[in-house]
Nucleic acid binder design. Structure first.
Lengths: 345, 345
DNA sequence: GTTAGCACTCGAAAGGGATGAGTGCTAACA
DNA sequence: TGTTAGCACTCATCCCTTTCGAGTGCTAAC
């Protein structure tokens, strides 16, 4: 038996690939006849049957019941994604579609993010999610405080890449507008060129050392700003697409999926965890959220100015068109990176 | 026949009420026996049958087929909402629930809105939507421009109520930070005390008259600000609740509803249109969006400082628990109004 | 005007083949 | 030794029929 990837001989791999491909398209158990016809290997159904029997024993296939075909196990999807998938390229039509629907003239980050999510969801027909650029990882250029009412102000942070974000923070009461302006300048000066998340550790002690009396108030404000800014925000689009797939024809299951997606906490967590790998795939029970264990989540990162600044991805049934999803995500990652790189400088 | 509301005698009204009440709870056609038992009118099923037959002829009831019970028509719901509904009050438990889940310490408007939407959706088990306070109807107190990059700046508008909002706008290129600061002050001075939406009409001509050369640029910026600010934003929560109702057990129908809700444009339109009536109810085909014609939408307005500043509501199946929804919305309207009134000054 | 009685309707649920896709095994073939 | 044809067997699905019962409408009596 000629080994390959230390797992299966080539013929078994090809058969498994054919089965997964077919199952992804039809959602129906695949029989030996179908495989024999579709995979142009010139093998009879009987031979395929023997191989399928082996694959079942090895844990790559499952049988809903004796007289049905086989469906891929999670292990099969894993193998499929790692080794045997046609890593599809987008057709010209698809690339055109994206170009047409990504309006590069838009100049607001949140708008670009929304569009991106929309396009991913439309192209894949799954649920897409795009994290807005990670803020506290960017270098601060300017911080402006705008008095709003006694005790509160709006802090607007501008980074060197031009991304801005704002949040309400508490400020000491009884500050005159001039004091506030001074504070703005002071904080800007202290944070300039630092990343927000690092600043809290590196700059705060400095400030405490340098400035005497007001230090505490200033430090608290900076911490407050950092806290508000590091809230990750995720745009989720196309949740209802899940209803197109027969595995979610059961209302209770669909409901569970949609509720989980609406709260978004798990998706947010996945995006955050995947922020340092170019592409990640979580299949079924590889998700540690029990509500999502018959879903798969694929993520990619995107960059601006050469640095990863965010993650985006797709959630759908485990029977997902991984090839297409990964192709779309790759394409969108570079599109978005390009747009943001231009936009943010 | 003793007339009432110029439409139906009292007995018919009570019977209709019993039918609607029952149908709202069970979603199953209501038979004469049930009505006879549940409405304590001491009438036999046969009598009820005669009345129901009349009500059918009058267009208040419909018969799915001969041997089923009756279900209320839209006309019946309309009558029910207008005249015969028990305008339920919340139980103490419910009021407690709301108090517990509305964290009054939160000091960010968008957070309050999100909570409100969450609570409405949880209490009614329908889909809730809450419009963030209408911005351009508030009086401007200060406008700050923060340079972001060549040609663009972030405009932050603070109103006299303390609500703030910000948006990226285009600015003339080649402005120094000092110029921008001057512009901030100029615009603040011009807009101070005016409502944004009125300012465009009343203040712009003034500016054009007073300032010579730079007028065009300034006016454009103000218009740009107004445009960005008047975008209404709606928080929608609990869309997946719809899957709990048997009328949406059909995946295609559910999908249609969810897609419509996700885009949100119709809901946004309804909220906007209803911003001047304390409470509005749109039943079924009273919605002009064909996709929503078997839904009902109930809205209420909320205030701050005595003025309407926003609308919120609930979407659900026409067979909706109008009594409860309206009670919850009323309660939430006054809660939110109170919180915002405090929060915004 | 109200009610009991009764025949009638018709959807929903339950039962019961027939169908056919698919399997596993065996025996023959190259 | 690997491949294949043949065949008996399995079992979900489809479709048809029957049964069941909730509910109606009508009539006649109270």
């Amino acid at each position: 038996m000629s080994e390959n990837k230390g797992l299966l001989d080539i013929r078994k791999m090809r058969i498994l690939q054919a089965i997964v491909d077919d199952y992804i398209m039809t959602a129906a158990p695949v029989g030996s006849r179908t495989v024999s016809k579709r995979s142009d290997m010139g093998l009879s159904p009987a031979t395929i049957r023997n191989e399928m029997s082996d694959l079942t024993e090895l844990g790559f296939l499952e049988q809903p019941h004796t007289s049905a075909g086989r469906i891929p196990s999670e292990k099969a999807y894993r193998l499929y994604v790692n080794h045997l998938m046609d890593s599809a390229k987008l057709t010209d039509d698809e690339a055109d579609y994206i170009k047409k629907h990504l309006d590069t003239r838009v100049h607001e980050v949140s708008e670009v993010i929304r569009q991106t999510a929309r396009v991913i969801s439309d192209m894949t027909n799954y649920t897409s999610m795009v994290m807005v650029p990670q803020f506290s990882a960017l270098k601060v250029k300017r911080v402006t405080l705008i008095p709003v009412s006694e005790g509160s102000a709006m802090a607007v942070v501008v980074t060197n890449t031009g991304v801005t974000k704002n949040a309400m923070i508490r400020i000491p009461e009884a500050l005159s507008p001039e004091d506030i302006e001074k504070l703005s300048k002071l904080i800007t000066q202290k944070l300039d060129g630092h990343k927000l998340n690092e600043a809290v550790e590196s700059v705060l002690p400095q400030i405490r050392a340098e400035i005497g009396e007001q230090a505490d108030a200033v430090c608290e404000m900076i911490e407050d700003i950092e806290r508000s800014m590091s809230e990750t925000n995720v745009e989720v689009v196309g949740a209802s697409n899940i209803l197109d797939y027969p595995e979610y024809s059961d209302a209770a299951k669909a409901r569970q999926f949609l509720t989980e997606v609406e709260t978004g906490s798990y998706l947010q967590k996945v995006l955050a965890e995947s922020s340092d790998v170019e592409m990640s795939v979580r299949i079924g029970t590889e998700n540690d959220n029990p509500e999502m264990q018959d879903c798969s989540v694929v993520t990619v990162t995107y960059k601006a100015g050469g640095k990863n600044i965010g993650t985006m991805g797709v959630v759908g049934p485990t029977r997902m068109d991984y090839g297409k999803v990964m192709a779309v995500l790759k394409y969108m990652s570079s599109s978005l990176s390009e747009i943001l790189s231009k936009l943010l400088k």
